[in-house]
């Protein structure tokens, strides 16, 4: 299920504005890759280009290639809708569908995929996904209640359950804990550690301790100045990045000298 992602010479634009320049990296399957860097350096933009969510923004486009197990996502004839069904995403702020129950939120993506499923099969998907997101015990007695009635941390885990219900190959997380308290953050981090058994995970985070705790590989993004494009400064094993980074800027950022 988990797949390897090869990014090659990727330039990301908003209209004429080059937001992220010349990214090449390899994201290993069944691992957690963290992307760190100061605000506005293009981490989230890059993350969104991995499942073609970038082009949802008017004027958003890319050059270069993003290949998942050899298949370029940006090939002519590749439907972005199919890409997004295979590469799930969890957003910065919890965003369950406010008009849907917990149950319907979890199966929202499954229902989209068009496969007709029996009620019992759907029930299985809901239980498995909520178990997977460590939320089952908290909500199993109120699956028909609105998802918006949960706490922030629970809502975020509901969003993760919704994303893994469709069994994606890759899970992208855009600062999934930035709107959560420390306890909920811990729950999500535990969850990430479990999920990496099955999924390729890419996580953008502002919290460097978090990157150090959850990830196997870390990429450091930086920006030369306002209006300049963001770049990947270096990428390596998380242990190496946080102990002996090969670039001075990375060391400065990690040790808190800027950013």
């Amino acid at each position: 299920m988990a797949k390897r992602i090869d990014v090659k010479d990727l330039n990301i634009y908003y209209g004429d504005f080059l937001a992220v320049e010349d990214i090449s990296m390899t994201i290993e399957p069944r691992s957690v890759t963290a992307l760190i860097g100061p605000s506005g350096c293009g981490k989230s933009t890059f993350l969104r280009s991995l499942n073609r969510m970038h082009e949802v923004v008017p004027g958003g486009r890319v050059e270069g290639s993003v290949a998942v197990d050899g298949q370029d996502l940006y090939d002519r004839g590749v439907d972005p809708v199919d890409v997004r069904r295979q590469i799930g995403m969890v957003f910065q702020r919890p965003n369950p569908f406010p008009t849907m129950s917990i149950y319907d939120n979890v199966v929202a993506g499954v229902r989209l995929s068009g496969t007709r499923m029996k009620r019992s099969e759907l029930d299985d998907v809901v239980e498995r996904s909520l178990q997977g997101a460590n939320l089952w015990n908290e909500v199993k007695d109120r699956l028909t209640k609105p998802g918006a009635g949960l706490s922030g941390g629970q809502q975020q885990r509901l969003c993760i359950a919704r994303a893994i219900a469709v069994e994606p190959q890759v899970l992208l997380m855009d600062e999934p804990c930035s709107a959560l308290d420390p306890i909920s953050t811990l729950a999500i981090e535990d969850l990430i550690a479990n999920l990496k058994q099955e999924y390729t995970i890419v996580i953008v985070t502002h919290n460097m301790q978090q990157a150090a705790r959850v990830s196997d590989f870390t990429g450091f993004f930086n920006i030369a100045g306002t209006g300049k494009p963001g770049k990947l400064i270096e990428m390596d094993d998380t242990a190496k990045i946080f102990s002996t980074p090969s670039v001075k800027a990375t060391e400065d950022y990690i040790s808190g000298r800027f950013g």
Binding site: V56, R84, F97, A163
Partner: peptide
């Protein structure tokens, strides 16, 4: 909310499905 629309799109909804959801 833009967040909800993006949530639907990120699940692989077409534009019409996103509108319906």
């Amino acid at each position: 909310p833009r967040l909800n629309q993006e949530a639907a799109l990120a699940l692989g909804a077409t534009r019409w499905e996103m509108i319906r959801m």
